[in-house]
Design a protein around this nucleic acid. Structure first.
Lengths: 136, 136
DNA sequence: ACGAGTTGCGTAACGGTATAACGTGTGCAA
DNA sequence: TTGCACACGTTATACCGTTACGCAACTCGT
């Protein structure tokens, strides 16, 4: 369907709706919250959202935050290296900062190698308080 | 109730049961799986398990794996520094390796500091394949 | 000894998260 | 035109976790 500028991936109608909901939000959304936002657009069942999310994650346009059971639009689609992203989740306000860092990735690879573990994907989620909320 | 050798913490009856179930298991268990294992010991409701788990996590005897919605007995209770533990989860067999690493902890602290984020706790969970499963 | 506070326990009901199992429609290639 | 792949839609169900309530036991200060 509509083409995504940064990746050239064609999104279907439902994928576009879900992507839009996540892009507009300023903090991660649960699948059911997304569903509620999109009821007026014709979505009715959780599965419609989950299917779209699965694809969007596969395309690298969306990340899943495991510790929150929620999803967030990727802020730097251009970067490769998904699967090694560090998320900083502000507990007061819910906003998340997304960072990739070679040093972390390298160290994790080393640690895995030390015990013979074949690393496929890393989930790194930090909890704390963002600068804005500390000031407030 | 019974005293835990390594920590001196007194566990209640339910806490002891749940701790026992996790210690016997060789991979992480969900709360409901624990419940099923302990039905013969008199447990009947999820809340009984969740309450025990909350305390055990608080004591540092058990870790929660966010990406699995499951729990695992801590393999090195002696170490302090919970909240910075790296878990390597083998997808074929489910076993998890638990490691703490100063370099990772330090780098995460630095990254957080760079953006003014007050770090409270880190979730680091790696997915991949353990040495045994690679050989098989 | 007594009451107040705290902690753990037990049960029922519920809400949030995710998937299974169907079947339908469309586009495209052999 | 038949078969395949893919997205879609619906219903039902499974799994994860919490709220709300009340009771029992154990402190601890008076």
């Amino acid at each position: 369907m509509t083409s995504h500028a940064q990746t050239g991936v064609d999104l279907t109608k439902n994928q576009t709706l879900v992507m839009g909901a996540l892009s507009n939000a300023d903090s991660p959304l649960s699948a059911y919250t997304i569903l509620d936002k999109l009821r007026d657009d014709g979505l009715r069942a959780p599965l419609q959202v989950y299917r779209a999310l699965d694809k969007l994650v596969e395309f690298g346009l969306v990340h899943r935050l495991e510790s929150l059971n929620a999803f967030v639009a990727c802020r730097h689609t251009a970067c490769g290296d998904h699967g090694q992203t560090v998320f900083m989740i502000c507990e007061p306000c819910g906003k998340t900062i997304e960072i990739t860092d070679k040093a972390i990735a390298k160290r994790l690879t080393t640690l895995a190698g030390d015990v013979g573990f074949a690393l496929r994907r890393a989930t790194i989620e930090l909890r704390g308080t963002c600068e804005t909320c500390q000031a407030a």
